[in-house]
Design a protein around this nucleic acid. Structure first.
Lengths: 130, 130
DNA sequence: GGTTGACCTAGAGCCGACTCTAGCTCCTAC
DNA sequence: GTAGGAGCTAGAGTCGGCTCTAGGTCAACC
């Protein structure tokens, strides 16, 4: 255990992250990685553990609806290094707000759906009793 | 006030629902309406208050991620009339589950984002003090 | 009678985020 | 030596849900 993952193939990263190999290449092309993905023999991609860690953040940001351009922007800032923390914070805060809003909207929708489910349940209950 | 909305034009419905006239025609074509949209002079669509009410439900279901085919299926069931309440309930319950799951996932994402925001806040605070 | 402006239909176009394909290079194992 | 499997690039295709366009009808106003 705790094997030193000195370098991972695209297939291994796909397996670990749940992303497809296509998505991994696509993300790279879109500039989502902070450091250029290393290449090994025959030009094959070699991923580090850092890459995988970064990808797990990306997956969460994407899952919460951050568009790729914003994700790229965030990666750009991280790549630039120290000095732009304010901007990173702003970007994250904005996303935080969007996600909070979205949860709120969904919760509202859920209320209506719960209500409608209740209506049908009652209706079917009554039919059963009658 | 409480004006009797005997019949609404597509433009009026668009205004009231926030949907575009394009979307309204598209929904109709997709079979999202329970009753066929009436037509007035020169083949113009005439919507009833019931149509608008139904649309508000549709908007909420869509906003919570129900795909159009499912929405159409639900409309089909309602159109069929009494006797399929079990199926409507099942459809709504499934959607309820999906929305609940989605809210859960978003809340998890939000945790990480909140954490990251905190990290940057602390970091910037420290820099300010130093 | 000419110009808006709201509406009509059918169908094309767009956007985001992948997903898939063709045609290629390697390496490994039989 | 050849078949399979993983990877490569560049670019095409897909999907859902609209959005937009072209080309037309109609009624109302000036």
């Amino acid at each position: 255990m705790a094997e030193v993952t000195a370098g991972l193939s695209i297939g291994q990263v796909a397996e670990r992250t749940g992303l497809s190999v296509h998505a991994l290449r696509f993300y790279e092309q879109q500039g989502v990685f902070v450091t250029p993905v290393r290449r090994g023999a025959a030009g094959r991609r070699v991923y580090s553990q850092d890459d995988v860690d970064w990808l797990s953040i990306c997956i969460i940001l994407r899952a919460s609806g951050m568009p790729l351009p914003a994700l790229r922007r965030y990666a750009d800032l991280v790549r630039e290094g120290n000095g732009n923390e304010e901007e990173r914070l702003a970007l994250l805060r904005e996303h935080h707000g969007r996600v909070t809003d979205q949860i709120g909207r969904l919760a509202q929708c859920l209320d209506l759906i719960t209500f409608k489910v209740g209506v049908y349940e009652d209706l079917l209950d009554q039919n059963r009793q009658a």
